[in-house]
Design a protein around this nucleic acid. Structure first.
Lengths: 358, 358
DNA sequence: CTGTTAGCGCATTCAA
DNA sequence: TTGAATGCGCTAACAG
């Protein structure tokens, strides 16, 4: 393994001092033009590559940022990462991407590792931060921006507008006549999940409806929890005519279980999702994609870009900059899994008022 | 921004020398047990974190490996990355993941950046390496393992068994009676794509069939190229009864365009894909997922794990270890898009011989 | 067992 | 404009 050339090697090859070479290569400081050219040429010739390690050690800046994601396998995350990547690489930062697998242990191990590597900043996507250990760690670490889940109020944050999202869904369902609306939650620990649930209640009230606790099914973003919810529901004597799921996977599970029990979606039961995970299907005709799921589509790439931009700002401005919070608007995709409730059971009625655009 | 504590700080707080502290913290070398405990405690107290930067600079090992992927947005890659991550993080390596977006410029920029950061190794997933620049760069860089595409023979490589895959597909189609089989290629520059195409020809011959150049449609892994292929095909007087696509997206494009022209898939035209991108749909009943695509499923996670394991071996053994190549077996998923050819046009016939399992 | 010393490769001050 | 000298934080001899 041939040792890689250093500044000293270039300097020697040129008969100049290391300092001069360093200046020539970094572009900072005065160097006679002719020598600069010579230096650059020989550097290239002998295959010199500047060591980001040594530079970072010296300058205390690594030009890298760490990104923690909860599950690389979930289709919404790559899109967010792409957004982050697009703005960060444009500014010369390298992103170190790590997958925490929703595990607090991995979370702390990876965050430590990134901090040890002197990342200039951290972007935490959908991290729950349940343990105090991780919070202490972050407190002593570089600036960090939270995406999708906000562990505490005083933190830079970017996320979709959950309030608006729930409103859109409830308005849609109530608008086509549903009065008996259920809900499947996400995991307890997710701030996002709590926020959505609480807005669910608010939105229902706006339509003169109340939350029925037995129609709120605990979930965890999996297909299985959707199935389970339908099983539970079918044991009830008074059943909802529509159920909103915390994400698309739960919604798919519901649809499956409902169908296997002879319930037709949306005729007997309307179902909504969240995330629009199968969004590539927009490129295909309806006939080809699976039954179109009525769902909320979040601006994934924009969320990533906003988070990256926020971090850059913080990196430039230091700790003093005031805390920020960017909430991005979402869209509802009304497709095939929602319809008016079964006749004779509910009468369609008009929405009391159209909610103002936000 | 409070400067982060260094070994010197811990040493001072303990009234010991830096060397002793270093030994205590790294666990190497002799340190009196009592002092070791004291050191560890104070280190924790003042929030000391060892600088991976300085250590890497000193030891010339960064305990990190760079992973380049072609498109983080394509569902097959996250799975591969997960496999890589699983074995690498278990060994204490951090993975630096970068997205080249299929762009040669990004590819070279990112590879440079990773090498500059002294990654111990590189895993290149589906990278084309068209430019000599990148090949020179890699030649001077750390050990690297190629996944899915192999730029040259003398390289560590992990990938799916393309030969077997094509055989499975052709055997399946020929087995149900097709004699007129077409093909949509992937991008020219991909070794994988070339390998598959060449095996396509071999497999056809084995069934006594010949490749018809006008039935080989150039493609680029997109939905659109699938549509285009069907358009071209429909201008032909003598048409294939089955077309194999280089990946699932092209296959979807074909199905769409075929249907919009009033052709029924699979009654009038059989279609196969490659990758099994919608594999999560296996968890759902057929009725819910989109029309089940007959396709090849590769062991994505295993591919990632094998690549990581190979790199680790190379890191341990040095350059001397003999070059390796791991080819992993694939599966065919026969679903709803393939059926015997239209009657009267082709007669079902028996496969000449069953190909031995590989 | 512990401390002293000397770099890893680079950026940066200060003199020349 | 250039060169000599210093140190970022750590590890690895080596000497005590």
């Amino acid at each position: 393994m041939p040792k890689r050339p250093t500044i000293a090697d270039v300097a020697q090859a040129c008969g100049l001092s290391r300092a001069t070479v360093a200046r020539a290569l970094s572009g900072k400081g005065y160097v006679e033009n002719e020598k600069r050219l010579l230096i650059q040429k020989t550097a290239r010739k002998i295959g010199y590559r500047t060591s980001a390690l040594a530079r970072a050690l010296r300058t205390q800046r690594s030009a890298s940022v760490g990104v923690l994601i909860a599950d690389i396998t979930n289709p919404i995350f790559p899109q967010i990462v792409k957004g982050i990547d697009d703005v960060l690489s444009a500014k010369g930062h390298t992103i170190l991407l790590c997958n925490t697998d929703e595990s607090p242990q991995k979370q702390i191990a990876l965050a430590s590792s990134l901090i040890d590597r002197h990342v200039d900043g951290l972007i935490l996507v959908s991290q729950s931060l349940e343990t105090p250990a991780i919070r202490d760690l972050l407190a002593g670490g570089p600036p960090c921006v939270f995406v999708n889940r906000r562990p505490f109020e005083t933190a830079d944050y970017v996320g979709p507008d959950n309030i608006q999202a729930i409103d859109l869904l409830v308005d849609h369902l109530a608008g086509i006549g549903h009065t008996k609306i259920g809900y499947i939650t996400g995991t307890e620990s997710s701030s996002t999940s709590r926020e959505r649930l609480s807005q669910f209640s608010v939105a229902l009230q706006r339509h003169g409806l109340a939350v029925r606790p037995e129609w709120v099914f605990p979930g965890d973003y999996t297909i299985e929890c959707g199935r389970e919810a339908v099983r539970k529901m079918s044991r009830l004597s008074d059943r909802p005519t529509a159920i909103m799921a915390a994400n698309d996977f739960s919604a798919l599970g519901m649809i499956e279980e409902a169908q296997s029990r002879g319930l037709s979606v949306p005729r007997d039961l309307s179902v909504t999702g969240f995330d629009d995970v199968l969004s590539f299907s927009d490129q295909l005709p309806r006939s080809l994609s699976m039954q179109g799921l009525t769902t909320i589509s979040q601006p994934k790439r924009e969320i990533g870009m906003a988070a990256a931009a926020m971090l850059l700002e913080r990196l430039a401005g230091g700790r003093e900059t005031t805390l920020q919070s960017v909430i991005l608007p979402v869209n509802i995709k009304v497709r095939d899994t929602t319809a008016p409730p079964p006749m004779g059971q509910e009468k369609p009625h008009r929405t009391r008022r159209k909610r103002a655009a936000r």
